[in-house]
Design a protein around this nucleic acid. Structure first.
Lengths: 111, 111
DNA sequence: TCCATATTTCCACAATATTGGAATTATGGA
DNA sequence: TCCATAATTCCAATATTGTGGAAATATGGA
């Protein structure tokens, strides 16, 4: 992954509202949520939410598709996977005993 | 993990210099690097670097220990592991086929 | 004690990001 | 065509962050 993309993703997540928004979509899973429901859930005015959705979307972390009058946003799980790999890149120079436990711990505590 | 800590970690990583700095320490592994060498490697004046080290350190992503006149900074691998878990929290409501591949992909591409 | 090296703290200027009001675009139904 | 709903774009005020100069602190050696 390019450094610029990772930076955009980290910047997008590095804000209270957007982090909450992203995690809401992670929890919503593959069904996603319409922008209006997200705004209601987070208590954010629609134009502000729109700016936040755009940032996360430009970073590739979420994707919106129109469905009637609503736009349904979904978390992009691949993007998170790529970001994790980027952060751990060249972490061990072959000595995988250093970095393997990091991802193993994450895996065992997830789901 | 508390949301505040995750936010501090993401904010700390969401900046070009600090992201490069963190990844440098990830690559340096458990030996770490003295602040001076980091400054030289990144081409950043020492006082600016110090502010960046402080931010990453306060977020728990790195840790510095004095050794003679130098302070050796090391990446905290546990912190990254915790951040990954936080981002994926409640990702699948039991339907682990959604989120398991994310971490598996990360694991297979790392090391 | 004095000096050189390593790093940090203090501070203020410049750059960047966040927010929401008002207006705009898009869709579907009557 | 007209209206209501859903979401976005434009813009400017406000808030936050990043940067480096100058001074300060900490360590080790002569």
């Amino acid at each position: 992954m390019e450094s610029k993309i990772a930076l955009a993703q980290l910047s997008a997540l590095a804000q209270e509202n957007r982090l909450a928004l992203f995690r809401l979509l992670i929890r919503a899973g593959q069904d996603g949520l319409p922008a209006g429901e997200i705004a209601a859930a987070l208590g954010v005015p629609p134009n502000t939410l729109s700016a936040q959705l755009t940032l996360l979307s430009n970073a590739g972390l979420i994707e919106g598709t129109r469905q009637g009058r609503s736009i349904i946003y979904k978390a992009q799980f691949d993007a998170i996977s790529g970001l994790i790999v980027f952060l751990m890149e060249d972490c061990c120079q072959g000595r995988s005993e250093i970095c393997a436990p990091v991802l193993e711990a994450a895996q065992s505590r997830c789901c």
